[in-house]
Simulated scan of single mutants.
Amino acid sequence: MRGGPMPGTATDTFVNHRNLLFTVAYEMLGSAADAEDVLQETWLKWSGVEHDTVENQRAYLVRIVTRQALGRLRTLGRRKETYVGSWLPEPLLTAPDVAEDVELADSVSMAMMLVLETLTPTERAVFVLREVFGLDYDEISAAVGKTPAAVRQIAHRARSHVAARRPREVVTQAATRAALAAFQRATETGDLQGLLDLLAPDVVFLGDGGGVKQAVARPVVGAAKVARLLLGGLTRVAGWSMEPAQVNGYPALVFKFAGELDAVIALRIDDGLISGLYAVRNPAKLSHMAQETRLAR
């Protein structure tokens, strides 16, 4: 870390809250690389603070990271406007303790991260800080630069927006593993009917190659189209394999080609059927699949 020598207590405070701060930044940005940059900016800001005057160091650090993330969200928004194909959140190989915290796992799932993408930057910050991290309205007010009354209104609007778009129920880890295992069997054996039985009629497939790797240019909608896409693509290529992994708090599949990581596929499940398939192939987004990322609330 840059910024010169720091008293042990200030450094220790930052290190002790690092996983929390990364989680806040990642949930706001959907990008682990940008979240890491925001943590660096937060450290530099924190290194210039008179720490003895800070009553609640956790809230203060969350305030800094939120402000830095809000600024970066606007830059990220401009990058997404010129992004080639669909933009998907950066997948994280997550530690087992994330799955044990049902609320945390739900909040960082690929399905929920895509719902958060539909919020404005301020709505996203307020929702994440209130619903995921349980900050009070005064603390959020200081973080986003709005009055507590305005924050309450934003929180209500964001909750309603998310409720209308999020998966209808929190799917258990066991149910997700079962759906993945059935999906893996069907795709590996070329079982078209078996695959159709797993997919919701209006299932959506999104692929993110970032213009670097081949991926569908726009969303593919409908069970028959998605099934043909999957089976057609896999049967044409030899040397691929699938392995289960814990990604963003939930079971997912890792695709390897010739033994090398090629893609990560996460699922959204509604009413027992796969309603969303999210395939990330952009190599720049797969670096956090090399080792577990620790998240915290």
Results as ranks from 00 to 15, higher is better:
residue 283 P to V: 11
residue 275 S to D: 10
residue 276 G to W: 00
residue 277 L to T: 10
residue 272 G to T: 08
residue 268 R to D: 04
residue 278 Y to L: 12
residue 282 N to A: 12
residue 282 N to L: 00
residue 283 P to A: 10
residue 252 A to P: 09
residue 287 S to G: 04
residue 280 V to T: 13
residue 256 K to V: 06
residue 266 A to L: 13
residue 250 Y to V: 01
residue 255 F to G: 01
residue 268 R to G: 15
residue 271 D to E: 14
residue 251 P to G: 10
residue 278 Y to G: 02
residue 251 P to K: 05
residue 250 Y to G: 00
residue 283 P to W: 09
residue 269 I to S: 06
residue 277 L to N: 04
residue 267 L to E: 02
residue 286 L to F: 12
residue 262 D to R: 13
residue 249 G to I: 04
residue 253 L to F: 07
residue 278 Y to V: 12
residue 281 R to L: 14
residue 278 Y to D: 11
residue 260 E to M: 12
residue 258 A to I: 03
residue 257 F to V: 05
residue 283 P to T: 12
residue 250 Y to R: 07
residue 263 A to L: 01
residue 269 I to A: 09
residue 265 I to W: 13
residue 257 F to C: 00
residue 266 A to D: 06
residue 269 I to P: 10
residue 279 A to Y: 15
residue 264 V to D: 11
residue 269 I to V: 15
residue 250 Y to T: 01
residue 259 G to L: 04
residue 285 K to Y: 02
residue 272 G to Q: 02
residue 270 D to V: 09
residue 273 L to T: 13
residue 264 V to S: 12
residue 282 N to K: 01
residue 269 I to T: 10
residue 282 N to H: 05
residue 254 V to E: 12
residue 265 I to H: 07
residue 258 A to G: 12
residue 280 V to G: 13
residue 280 V to L: 08
residue 272 G to R: 01
residue 277 L to Y: 13
residue 283 P to L: 11
residue 273 L to F: 08
residue 281 R to W: 14
residue 274 I to W: 08
residue 255 F to W: 07
residue 260 E to G: 06
residue 258 A to W: 13
residue 284 A to N: 03
residue 259 G to I: 00
residue 286 L to N: 05
residue 250 Y to F: 10
residue 255 F to T: 08
residue 287 S to P: 05
residue 264 V to Q: 12
residue 281 R to K: 15
residue 265 I to L: 15
residue 255 F to Y: 14
residue 257 F to W: 13
residue 279 A to M: 13
residue 266 A to H: 07
residue 278 Y to K: 07
residue 263 A to K: 08
residue 256 K to P: 04
residue 256 K to R: 15
residue 287 S to H: 11
residue 287 S to V: 14
residue 270 D to M: 03
residue 275 S to A: 05
residue 254 V to I: 11
residue 276 G to K: 02
residue 285 K to C: 03
residue 284 A to W: 07
residue 277 L to R: 12
residue 277 L to W: 13
residue 285 K to N: 03
residue 268 R to Q: 14
residue 254 V to P: 03
residue 278 Y to W: 13
residue 281 R to F: 15
residue 273 L to C: 04
residue 278 Y to R: 10
residue 263 A to F: 06
residue 276 G to F: 00
residue 279 A to E: 15
residue 254 V to Y: 05
residue 251 P to Q: 09
residue 260 E to Q: 15
residue 253 L to Q: 07
residue 256 K to Q: 09
residue 265 I to T: 07
residue 270 D to T: 14
